[in-house]
Amino acid sequence: MAGFDKVVGSYAEALAGLEDGMTVIAGGFGLCGIPENLIAEIKRKGTRDLTFVSNNCGVDGFGLGVLLEDRQIRKMVSSYVGENKLFMEQLLAGELEVELTPQGTLAEKMRAGGAGIPAFFTATGYGTPVGEGKEVREFNGRHYILEESVVGDFAIVKAWKGDRYGNLVYRHTAMNFNPEAATAGKITVAEVEQLVEPGELEPSQIHTPGIYVNRLIQGSFEKRIEQRTVRAG
């Protein structure tokens, strides 16, 4: 690797340094825009006791769900889980911890974490189980709770196009949490469908500037659909 070239030669290299007990922030919503090959590499690598900050935990056999098979996940910080049987089994058996976090708060935790803001006040969750034990402040007659931001030891994201400098562009709603996740890793690893040369992406159209990305790899993707809904025509 030289200068600003972030491209690595293998998935093993992309996740070098990921160790047991670390916190990983993952982009994706449902199975849309998930870094599927990086997840597969974590499974291959066998890293354990991981905390994942991700909106969902995949499904049985795909996405983060595959990491449940060998009990590699200790804790999930998510807004919506339970699309897989294995998840519920491990949760009920006390083998897996889950911290349910409102979706917008989860996104903001990543955004703030990446932006150097350690905590923020939000009205979301005030007066609900989410607000229990959290500091409450009143601003202009409304109640807000203090939420702490997150920074991951690693962040793993998936983009459509990326150049060697790590500049990323996402495609359609596969963007979702990926831009926030990309900012919030001590080491951010991006996998892309298309690797292009610097200068090929229009600078003002770049979603994630390369400064946030430490490692980049091109992969091929299954892009499984969770709810296939079509109309006639």
């Binding site: 849309c32 359609h172 709603t173 892009k223 659909i225 809904t229």
Partner: peptide, 17 residues
């Protein structure tokens, strides 16, 4: 989407295409 328009990168909050 129609069958022809179906795109895994285009979903709603219910995870439907």
């Amino acid at each position: 989407p129609t069958e022809a328009e179906l795109d895994p990168d285009m979903i709603n909050a219910g995870k439907q295409t």
